[in-house]
Amino acid sequence: MIKVRKLVKRFGLKTVLRGMDFHADQGEFVALLGPNGAGKTTFLRILASLSRPSMGRVNIAGYRLPDQASAVRRRLGVVSHQPLLYGDLTAEENLRFYGRMYGVRDLQSRVAEVLELVGLTPRRRDLVRTYSRGMQQRLAIGRAVLHDPDVMLFDEPHTGLDQDASAMLDTVLREVAARGRTVVMTSHDLARAADLASRFDVISRGVITASVKRDEIEPNNLLAFYRQALQVA
């Protein structure tokens, strides 16, 4: 589903991704683990076609980036550091707007369904600028699943969520994965990642230093595995 070969990304003189190789099969749920500044967000932004690779090949769902970006974007749902929502629109209007951008069918009922899913139905007519951080994050998740994408990218999606919302997100993530969608999620929360993901990749200074499948490792050993992977780099 996702194939990345020798990906390099430079910002000016600074090289952030140094020939990174990565792949994810359909239905795989990859947790991307790594310290601050390792290049996780940069990598996800390239997969999302928000940033151009300096070198290397990226292929998603059989389409090449950056030249077939539009076909890739149709199949992509993204939750990023920022909520990507308009403060002066209500939750409902935000979803309706994005639904139109994606050409979602039966938009009215789909929006209602998604609002219910993320638990914002009672507040759907309120302006997003009056939302708390966690509520904005809930709506950001709703925005990302609105068009039922094949590949989902989550950049630290649990940040700012309360227990209820985290549980809601976990349910969404599990459901998405159970339906054969491919998920890449960055996280600093090893326990949570261990709970959700089917594979764990460690990224350090712009390369993947280790990768292990869920059934190849005891959840308790994940921390040790992570520590060791960082020392390799």
Partner: peptide, 16 residues
């Protein structure tokens, strides 16, 4: 307004 909550990225993610 587009930069505020990262909306520009939201626009750019759309398959258009």
């Amino acid at each position: 307004i587009e930069k505020d909550r990262g909306c520009l990225d939201g626009l750019l993610l759309a398959p258009v």
